[in-house]
Amino acid sequence: MPAHCIFCGIVDGTAPSYPVAEDAATVAFLDINPANAGHVLVIPRAHSRDLLEIPADDLAACSLMAQRIARVLTAPTADGGLGADGVNLLNCCGAPAWQTVFHFHLHVIPRYRDTGRDQLRLPWRPDVPGDPAELSALAAQLSAAAG
């Protein structure tokens, strides 16, 4: 574990956080720079730099905790949830992909139809299709590399 890892400090209790849930393998806490109110980070207790380094069992545990948190975020407010209309699950792997803390983490971001509650905007246009010939060539390349 790097001595300077803020998320390792959250795990061991030496760094402040706003805890939401935890289990034997993971910790979930509010992001201090939230995209929307209720934006939660899920991390493994054991340090892994990113998606490329995290062991499969820790990745699975983080995914299950993210699902647990997503259910809470979308639960009705009468049940203690936020009543979110949806959830984005985001992982940033590497500085060019916006990773700023180099301890694997998943962002669980509540989303709302009400734009007054939802400040998150996509950085790309998911409604603009790619070129079919380029997609076909890329799929063949990646399929061959993935085995």
Rank of each mutant, 00 (worst) to 15 (best):
Ala21Val: 11
Gln99Tyr: 12
Ala133Pro: 01
Arg125Ala: 11
Ser136His: 10
Ala28Met: 05
Arg68Met: 02
Leu122Asp: 07
Pro55Gly: 14
Leu41Pro: 00
Thr26Pro: 07
Asn33Lys: 07
Gly9Thr: 11
Val72His: 03
Leu59Thr: 00
Ala25Leu: 08
Tyr112Phe: 15
Leu135Gly: 13
Ile69Leu: 10
Arg111Tyr: 05
Leu52Arg: 08
Ile32Ala: 14
Ala146Arg: 15
Ile54Asn: 01
Ala144Asn: 06
Pro126Ala: 04
Ser48Ala: 14
Leu52Tyr: 04
Ala137Trp: 00
Gly38His: 11
Ile10Gly: 06
Asp31Met: 02
Ala60Asn: 00
Ala78Gly: 09
Val108Ser: 08
Gly86Asn: 07
Tyr18Arg: 15
Thr74Ala: 12
Ala37Pro: 13
Ile109Glu: 07
Pro126Val: 02
Leu138Gly: 05
Leu142Tyr: 02
Ala75Arg: 10
Arg71Cys: 04
Thr77Leu: 10
Trp98Ala: 10
Asp127Trp: 04
Val101Glu: 02
Ile6Phe: 01
Leu41Val: 05
Asp114Gln: 07
Arg121His: 05
Ala97Tyr: 01
Leu135Trp: 03
Cys62Phe: 01
Ala139Ser: 15
Arg113Cys: 07
Leu73Gln: 14
Asn36Pro: 14
Asn88Asp: 10
Val108Ala: 03
His39Val: 08
Leu142Trp: 02
Pro16Leu: 12
Phe104Tyr: 15
Ile32Val: 13
Leu41Gly: 02
Cys8Trp: 03
Leu120Gln: 07
Gln119Thr: 11
Pro129Asn: 01
Leu82Trp: 00
Arg68Thr: 12
His4Val: 05
Asp50Gly: 10
Asp127Cys: 06
Leu122Ala: 09
Pro110His: 08
Arg45Ile: 12
Arg117Ser: 14
Gln119Glu: 12
Ala15Gln: 09
Ala25Phe: 10
Glu134Tyr: 02
Val40His: 01
Asp58Asn: 12
Leu138Asn: 06
Pro110Phe: 03
Phe104Gln: 03
Leu89Ala: 13
Val42His: 05
Asn33Arg: 11
Phe104Pro: 08
Ala78His: 03
Val27Pro: 12
Ile10Gln: 07
Gly86Val: 14
